[in-house]
């Protein structure tokens, strides 16, 4: 029991630290691309602490308060069901009691909790943002899960541990053995990280409205915290599935950072898409590739 508690706290702490450092890096990176100095790498930590220690928080009814709590609980549960290390007793959380499909569904608990809270606030613009978010989710989930399903078919299991264990060395990484699955799911994965160019849902400047419009003070802090932790959990999941997992913490940081850098590079390079353009894009390009992938890798041997 003590092992589980320490392990869970370690996972959460690591996700949090990695989360604010990665986002801090992203702000620096973005600034340098735009020829600005940008804030410090620790800026996200400072911002988060500032929110969490605000004295005033306005709520719009009980559901508005419980929504962020549901989102946070969903995020923590997700973190605890993703195995962070391979061949280790540590940083495993409760991942032996879960599987890949469960994790993918846990990722969606957050948006739904958010939707309840925003609906309860009574701000129509917030609800509009939620609808946009759910629409984007509908677009990205199909190719995302199809890419992961290709991996599940390849290894004939839905267990993240088993998929990780099968990737013994670089040549056996799923990135190498099943590149088409990686290509199919990588863009939807970026969208699930709320990364540009798919971030019109909560875009900070252009769109006044969005899912976060009514949240303030400590509730905003909670939302920011869970977002950073969730980002890391998703990165680790993809590293587990395609980059062979990691046996040490340093390897884990290197691999997740590589994925994050890829996301950041795409984000800074492309202009933002509207929601329906996003959905249409996902259903044409990544899904089309996925269909080709299915025909080429699953149908072609014609069992």
């Amino acid at each position: 029991m003590a092992h589980y508690i320490i392990d869970a706290l370690a996972m959460l702490g690591m996700s949090y630290v990695m989360g604010f450092l990665f986002y801090g890096f992203y702000r620096q990176f973005n600034a340098r691309v735009q020829r600005r100095w940008g804030p410090s790498v620790f800026q996200n930590f400072f911002d988060n602490m500032k929110f969490l220690f605000k004295t005033e928080t306005i709520i719009h009814g009980p559901m508005f308060f419980f929504g962020p709590m549901i989102i946070f609980a969903g995020a923590v549960t997700t973190v605890l069901f993703v195995p962070y290390l391979k061949d280790s007793n540590w940083l495993q959380g409760f991942s032996h009691s879960g599987n890949l499909i469960l994790i993918i569904y846990l990722l969606v608990v957050g948006p739904l909790g958010n939707a309840l809270a925003v609906g309860s606030s009574g701000n129509p613009f917030g609800v509009m943002g939620v609808t946009r978010g759910l629409t984007r989710l509908m677009g990205l989930e199909v190719p995302f899960l199809l890419g992961l399903a290709l991996v599940m078919v390849q290894h004939e299991t839905a267990s993240v541990h088993a998929i990780m264990a099968a990737q013994t060395d670089f040549a056996h990484w799923n990135l190498m053995t099943n590149p088409i699955a990686f290509i199919v799911m990588i863009l939807p994965f970026m969208a699930s990280q709320h990364a540009s160019p798919f971030d019109v849902v909560g875009a900070p400047v252009e769109v006044y409205a969005g899912p976060r419009v009514e949240f303030s003070g400590r509730l905003l802090g909670v939302l920011m915290t869970q977002n950073m932790m969730m980002t890391v959990a998703k990165l680790v999941l993809i590293a587990d599935l395609f980059l062979g997992g990691a046996t040490t913490i340093w390897a884990l940081i290197a691999k997740t950072f590589a994925l994050f850098l890829l996301t950041a590079a795409v984000s800074t390079s492309f202009p933002r898409l509207r929601t329906e353009q996003t959905v249409d894009f996902f259903w044409k390009i990544p899904l089309g590739l996925g269909v080709i992938g299915v025909i080429a890798t699953v149908w072609f041997p014609w069992s």
Partner: peptide, 9 residues
Amino acid sequence: LIRGNMHRA
């Protein structure tokens, strides 16, 4: 438990 007030709009 964290310090701070919370009140309804």
